[in-house]
Simulated scan of single mutants.
Amino acid sequence: MKPRDESELAEAIRAAAGPLRVVGGGTRPVVRAAGEALHIGGLAGVRLYEPAALTLVVGAGTPLAEVEALLAGERQRLGFEPVRWNALLGAAGESTIGGVVAANVSGPRRLQTGACRDALIGVRFVDGRGEVVKSGGRVMKNVTGYDLVKLMAGSWGQLGVLSEVAFKLQPAAATEATVVLEDLGLGDAVAAMAAAMGSPFEVSGAGWMPGVGTMLRLEGLAESVAYRVGRLSAALARFGAVRIQRESSGALWRALGEVAPLHGLAGAIWRFSVKPSEAPGVVARLGCPVVLDWGGGLIWAVLPEGVDARALAAPYSGHATLMRGPGVVFQPEAPAIAALGAGLRAQFDPRGLFSGGAGNGL
Rank of each mutant, 00 (worst) to 15 (best):
R345T: 15
A16M: 12
P63S: 00
A334N: 01
G240R: 12
I40T: 14
P63W: 04
V259Q: 08
A313R: 03
E131R: 15
S163D: 12
V23T: 03
K168W: 08
E164V: 13
A284L: 13
A334G: 08
A336S: 12
A260K: 14
E305F: 12
L186I: 04
A17G: 13
G61R: 06
L303C: 11
K2G: 10
A115Y: 05
A311K: 15
E8M: 12
S163H: 10
A91H: 12
G352T: 09
Q112W: 00
E50A: 11
I269D: 04
G352R: 09
P280W: 09
V67C: 00
V57H: 00
G230H: 05
F348S: 11
R351K: 12
R254C: 03
E333D: 04
V139G: 05
G198P: 03
L322N: 10
L162V: 13
G73Q: 07
G267E: 11
R231W: 06
V58K: 08
A189R: 00
K150V: 13
A222I: 12
K150G: 15
S233I: 02
A103M: 11
L362I: 11
E247P: 05
V58D: 02
I13Y: 10
G264E: 07
G297L: 08
A177G: 07
A336W: 02
R351N: 02
A174I: 02
G130A: 13
L344P: 01
G198V: 01
G295I: 07
V282M: 12
L298W: 07
V229Y: 06
M1Y: 07
G73N: 01
R124A: 15
V123T: 03
G93P: 05
G361E: 06
A10I: 07
N104R: 06
L262Y: 11
Q76K: 06
V23W: 13
L221R: 06
V57S: 08
A177P: 12
S204Y: 04
A92E: 15
A279D: 03
G98L: 13
G306A: 08
L312I: 05
D5G: 03
V126K: 02
G361P: 12
V329S: 12
E333A: 00
V274A: 08
A15H: 07
A195M: 09
Q158C: 15
